[in-house]
Structures are given as structure tokens and as C-alpha cells.
């Protein structure tokens, strides 16, 4: 039922969910992102690829304004989500972050029980009823295919789960607040191959309902999952487009070099 409602909402929208317009981000004097403009399509998996230090994570974290936590950060340009500029001073940052579920590199469980981890966001947003919470926790744990493994020990500390379970718990925690977009920051890089596969499969399911933005340095992962690919190099947007085009018929020499594993000879972006 929830899903149907969401489908309806999406169809009403005339513009892409995330629009980036001339985004420039600098840490102190160091420019991490340089004049990026791009639209992120709805109900797709968008992969951001590029060599390390190219600004992948910065771009991802600028979507939910987590870069605000960095020291001396300056942001120019606009990011529109649902047509509203999220860097507008009037933006309610916590409401924005609720919309954008984040799955980080290493699963980061909160220092509390499994149950409380999933219920955390709902409690924050004012859901107090025990029965509602119970329902949400079960639903999200099931949806993250973790329910069967933990249903008998919901009260035990989340830190005792294996790292793969922790990442699925983080996914459940993020989905529990009913976000619109899922941001993944190399979410499988700390996991064993089996757990990684589970997360990847989950993403393929979730893209029916959400826009998913995925930072990855594994090109094969991008091939497996992505519908749309963004290639960044030294803070600049080099190429973007449907996955098939960018990954198989890249237009730009740098993209070709990166995808084939060669040195990117021409260092000028």
C-alpha cells in the first residue's frame, strides 16, 4: 500500500528528483568539486565512478548536506531536490536528511540494540506507539532480509552482529524513515563477497521504488547495477549518461583510460 502511494507521487513529478546546478565545493583552499551540473534520474541506480580523491564521496554527501560537518567547507551552486534548493538557508536540514537514506562505507550501527537501531529514526520523528514501532521494525528487517537471523535477539547490542548483518541493519534503519532517495557510499567495500551480493540484489529490488545513488570504485559493480553512470575526475564531471553508453562506448579519452585500467595520461581535467 505504501508502495502504491509512492508510485502515484512519482508520476506526478515533472522533473528529476535531484538536480545539480553549477555545484562547486571547496575545503579550505582545496576545490573538491568544480562546477558540476547534472540531473539524477528517478527510479534508477546512478553510479558515481572515478579514481580515488576525485570527489565521488563529496558529491554524494552534498546531497544530504553531510559535508556541512567538514571544517571550512564552502558550497557554491545549487542542488534542487523536489524542486527546492537544499542549500537555501531556510531548508530544514534534518527533514532533508530524512528524505535521503545513507549507507556508508563501513556499516555504522548506533550504540544500542538491534531493535532500537531500526526504531531510532522513527522515534526521532515522533512515532511513540509501541505497536507501530514493532510493525515498522519487523517490516524493515524483513525487507533487508535480516529478520530471520535476528528476530530472537532484537534486544541484544547491534555491535554483536557480523559486519554483513550490520550493513543490512543499517539499510533497514535507513529505510525505516521512508526516504525518497538512497545514497550508498561504497556500501559493499567492507563486506565479504556473499554479503556484498546480498546488498547488491537488494539495491536492484529497491530501485523500483527509490532513486539510488551509488558511489563505487568497482567498475564491475557499476556494470552489474547501474542504469546511469557519472564519471568524475579530479573534481570535474568528465562524462555522464546511460550506463550502457558510458561503460561500453565512452566518448571521452579519460573515461576510456579509466575503464580499461590504463594511466590517465592527460592530467589536465
Amino acid at each position: 500500500m505504501n508502495v502504491e502511494y509512492r508510485m502515484e507521487e512519482i508520476q506526478l513529478e515533472a522533473f528529476p528528483h535531484i538536480q545539480v546546478q553549477h555545484l562547486t565545493v571547496a575545503y579550505g583552499g582545496h576545490v573538491a568539486l568544480d562546477d558540476i551540473s547534472i540531473d539524477i534520474p528517478e527510479r534508477c541506480i546512478t553510479a558515481i565512478i572515478g579514481p580515488s580523491g576525485c570527489g565521488k564521496t563529496t558529491l554524494l554527501k552534498s546531497f544530504n548536506r553531510l559535508i556541512d560537518l567538514q571544517d571550512e567547507v564552502t558550497v557554491k551552486g545549487r542542488i534542487l531536490i523536489d524542486g527546492e534548493d537544499i542549500y537555501d538557508p531556510r531548508t530544514d536540514v534534518s527533514a532533508l536528511r530524512k528524505k535521503m537514506g545513507l549507507l556508508s562505507q563501513r556499516p555504522q550501527v548506533l550504540p544500542m540494540s538491534i531493535y532500537d537501531n531500526v526504531a531510532y529514526g522513527c522515534r526521532i520523528h515522533g512515532i511513540k506507539s509501541r505497536r507501530t514501532l514493532d510493525k515498522i521494525v519487523e517490516r524493515e528487517l524483513r525487507s533487508a532480509s535480516l529478520w530471520e537471523e535476528v528476530k530472537d535477539r532484537l534486544r541484544s547490542p547491534a555491535a554483536r552482529l557480523s559486519i554483513g548483518q550490520q550493513q543490512r541493519l543499517c539499510l533497514a534503519r535507513g529505510l525505516a524513515v521512508e526516504p525518497e532517495v538512497i545514497l550508498g557510499d561504497e556500501p559493499t567495500s567492507a563486506l565479504d563477497p556473499l554479503s556484498a551480493e546480498r546488498i547488491e540484489r537488494k539495491f536492484l529490488e529497491l530501485k523500483k521504488d527509490y532513486a539510488i545513488v551509488l558511489v563505487t570504485h568497482i567498475i564491475r559493480q557499476a556494470r552489474r547495477l547501474a542504469d546511469y553512470v557519472i564519471f568524475l575526475y579530479l573534481g570535474k564531471l568528465i562524462e555522464h549518461g546511460p550506463a550502457d553508453e558510458v561503460l561500453n562506448r565512452p566518448k571521452h579519452a579519460k573515461t576510456r583510460a579509466y575503464l580499461s585500467g590504463h594511466f590517465i595520461e592527460d592530467a589536465s581535467p
Binding site: N64, L66, L69, S94, A95, L96, R97, K98, K99, M100, G101, L102, S104, R106, Q108, V109, L110, P111, Y120, G121, I124, H125, C170, R173, G174, A176, V177, L183
Partner: peptide, 15 residues
């Protein structure tokens, strides 16, 4: 306290 804990909490919309 790891920064990631803060990020995890903030990204579900906590103040």
C-alpha cells in the same frame, strides 16, 4: 566517538 556514528544518526533526519 567515530564521526560515522554522527553521520548515521544525522542521515535518518535527527537534529
Amino acid at each position: 566517538v567515530p564521526q560515522a556514528i554522527r553521520e548515521a544518526s544525522l542521515s535518518v533526519g535527527a537534529t
